[in-house]
Amino acid sequence: MKLNLKVWRQNNANAAGKLVDYTVDGLNPDMSFLEMVDVLNDHLVKKGEEPVAFDHDCREGICGMCSMYIDGRAHGPQHAATTCQLYLRSFKDGDTVHVEPWRSRAFPIVKDLVTDRSAFDRIIAAGGFISVNTGQARDANNLPVDKHDAEKAMDAAACIGCGACVAACPNGAAMLFVSAKISQLALLPQGQPERDLRALRMVEQMDAEGFGNCSNIGACEAECPKEIKLTNIARMNRDFLAASVGSETE
């Protein structure tokens, strides 16, 4: 199988980038997209050229490191899959495929397809945590949690923080990510002590990072590899409103 690639190459954050054409032949349709880029990089290294820089880690869809905008979609055409779980059988032999980095002011390009997503880390540090006492672990089930809430919290916690929501959003908004991180704690009893402060601080940090504003387009939900739902954004809207007008927390 053969693919014609148009890959975004950019030396560093300040350099001008451009799409460069590569043709990779002899591919197996059951290779992952990242393995295909490995093959491309092998060829480039053998020719004495600079390999394409790209983020990757676990290669089993759970770490959130891989991050390419493939064929006009975040993580490519496969529904609910990260780039490492995207296989070449999703493409046709001889297809031309564009590969670009996430495009967001808050995710500056480091090199080629690698972006700096530490804005997400700063949002988590602003309030995406709970305070727990040290010491022995609690007895299991001594803190009752409604089953529906537990499931919704688990669904929100599935967010791997890859940034596909930002990449896919026409507004460059990060609200699906932030709302998932707020929701996973807001739904559980352990998240209640800091609930107001969390909503205020995380939204404040999200705005400071320069992400766009949500206008409920829904591209994030459609492209999220972990199928995080828009209902989380509504929950964040409620929590932030309650914290802003209803609580004494500032």
């Binding site: 064929d71 495009r103 967001s104 591209a219 459609a222």
Partner: peptide, 15 residues
């Protein structure tokens, strides 16, 4: 929030 847009984009696939 997105100073540089995508060279190739398929927004109709998701919205």
């Amino acid at each position: 929030a997105r100073p540089q847009g995508y060279a190739y984009n398929k927004p109709n696939a998701n919205s």
